[in-house]
Design a protein around this nucleic acid. Structure first.
Lengths: 251, 251
DNA sequence: GCATCGGTTTGATTCATGTCAATGTGTTCG
DNA sequence: CGAACACATTGACATGAATCAAACCGATGC
C-alpha cells in the first residue's frame, strides 16, 4: 500500500530564505551552494480564489510551489465532465520540468501565493544540482503513490467510503501542515466546496452532500457551519474509509 | 491533458548490451561511463503467468525493468475489492529507489522476464550518475501523467467508454512495442483476462464482458477468439473513448 | 428590509452497473 | 474420450448513484 503524500516530517528543518513556509523541492536548493543564485531567481505570484493559474495546453514557463492556499489540477472532457487529478497544498510542487505546456487546468480554489522559478533557469539548475533532481524524484514518487491510492478510491470505493476517505486525507495533511496541532482536537475547515469534493471523488455534488449528511447523522463527523469539521473519533472515521486501520504505511 | 505513457519514439536508439529490448531507465546508464559496472550488476529473473513477484508490504531488494511479458500492480482492500494501479509493459521500470518494501502486489499476468539490479548498488549508482536520476524522474512524471488519465477514466467514464479507452491504450502501446508494425492492420491480442480488465477499469468482469460484446456487435471492434482484437477504424474507436480526437498530446 | 447569488440540502425518479445464477467454450490431463 | 478446470458469456433482478427539480441558507449589496 502506498503511503500518504509526503508530509512535513520528511522535511529538513531549514526554512527557505524569506519564504513563509518550508518548500520541499526548494530545500534541496537551500542546501546547495547555489543559494544566492536561487534567491535571484525566486519570485512570488498571487491568485484569488477561483482564478485559473493556467489552462490545460497553455504555455507554462515556470515551476514553483504553493506557499499558502490550495491549487487543484483538473481534467475536463469535451462534454464537461470533470475529474480532479491533483490537490496541491502548501509546500507542494507545481509544474513539470521538461515540458513547455500545462497538461491540466490549474486552479486556485482559495487565495493562493506561489513561489515561482522560471522554468529554463530552474532546469539548468537541476543539471548543476543533482540533489534537486533527486528531491524532485522523491516528491514525484510520493505523488504517484498518492495518485494510486486515489485510483483505488475512484475505482472501488462506495460514495460513503469516498467521503470518509477524503475527510481523513484532508485531516491528516491539514494537521501535518499546522505543525503544532494543539492537542488532538482534530477540527479543521474543509478547503473545498461540495462541487470540488465531487470532482475529487468522481461523484455528483448531490451525492457528496447526501453522504456528508449521512456521516454527520451517524456521528462520524460533526459539522459547525457548512465547512468546519470536527472528528470525534478518528479510528471510527478510518473504519468508514474501507482502508486498513494503519493507513497502509510501508517501511 | 497528459500524454500517453512514454512510447518508444522517446528512446535513444542504443540497445542495452545483451538485453533483448531497450531499457528506458537503463539507457541512461548505457550512456554513462559506468557501463562496465552496470554489466556486473545486471541479472535476469523469470516469472510464470500468474506468479506474484512481490506482495504488498514485503521486502523488495531490487529494481528493474520488464524485458518481456506484462506485470501488474494491484491494491486490495480487506474485503477483497481489487484495483489495478499499474500496468507494466516491456521497457517499464519496476520498483522504487529509496523504499525497502513493495507498496503494491506485483503480479506477472503473462510469462515475464525482468532485468534487475540490486537496489542498494543501483541507488549508489544513481548518486554517481545524475543522468540516471533525471531519466527516472522523466519516466516517473510520465507514469504520473498516465495515472492521472487513468483517474479520469475511473472517475468519470461510462463502462463502454472505459472499455474503448483500454483497448485504445493497449493498441497504442502494443503497436509502439512491435516497432515495425506491418501496415496499419491494428490486430493484436488483449494481454489481459476479463477479470484483469475489470480490475484495471474499476468494473466487474460481467460488465466488461457485456461491453466488449456490445462494442463487437456495433462493429467498433472485431474479435477472433476471446483475445484477438482487430480495430477496423481507429477514429471510430477513439470516438467511443470520450477523449479528444488527438489523444490530448501536449507540446 | 429585500433581492440576489453562490453554495448547499433534500426529495422523487431513473438508469447504469453490480449481484447472483446458469450456461457455454476451449484446454489440459487423467 | 471424458472430466475437470479456467475463462467467458448471458440473463434476471437489485441497488447505489445520477438526474431532474425544488427549496434552503448565509453573505453581499442596494
Amino acid at each position: 500500500m502506498p503511503k500518504a503524500p509526503a508530509l512535513f516530517e520528511a522535511l529538513p528543518s531549514q526554512q527557505c530564505a524569506d519564504c513563509p513556509i518550508r518548500h520541499r523541492a526548494v530545500c534541496a536548493l537551500c542546501e546547495s551552494d547555489d543559494l544566492a543564485k536561487l534567491e535571484q531567481m525566486k519570485y512570488y505570484r498571487s491568485f484569488e480564489a477561483g482564478q485559473t493559474v493556467v489552462w490545460s495546453g497553455d504555455e507554462m514557463d515556470f515551476v514553483g510551489s504553493v506557499v499558502t492556499g490550495i491549487l487543484t489540477l483538473t481534467q475536463t472532457m469535451e462534454d464537461g465532465r470533470r475529474q480532479m487529478v491533483g490537490l496541491l497544498l502548501p509546500s507542494d510542487f507545481v509544474g513539470r520540468p521538461g515540458r513547455s505546456s500545462a497538461a491540466y487546468d490549474v486552479t486556485a480554489t482559495s487565495d493562493v501565493v506561489m513561489c515561482c522559478f522560471r522554468k529554463r533557469p530552474f532546469e539548468e539548475m537541476m543539471l548543476r544540482t543533482p540533489s534537486l533532481g533527486n528531491r524532485l524524484l522523491q516528491m514525484t514518487l510520493d505523488e504517484l503513490d498518492a495518485a494510486r491510492e486515489w485510483m483505488l478510491l475512484l475505482g472501488r470505493k462506495s460514495a460513503r467510503e469516498k467521503i470518509a476517505s477524503l475527510i481523513a486525507i484532508i485531516a491528516r495533511r491539514d494537521s501535518a501542515l499546522k505543525l503544532r496541532n494543539t492537542g488532538n482536537d482534530l477540527t479543521f475547515d474543509l478547503p473545498l466546496t461540495r462541487e470540488a469534493m465531487a470532482d475529487y471523488l468522481g461523484l455528483t455534488l448531490e451525492t457528496v452532500s447526501r453522504q456528508v449528511s449521512a456521516l454527520r447523522k451517524d456521528g462520524v463527523i460533526v459539522l459547525s457551519g457548512k465547512r468546519q469539521v470536527t472528528i470525534p473519533d478518528f479510528d471510527r472515521l478510518m473504519e468508514e474509509t474501507g482502508d486498513d486501520a494503519d493507513g497502509g504505511y510501508p517501511g
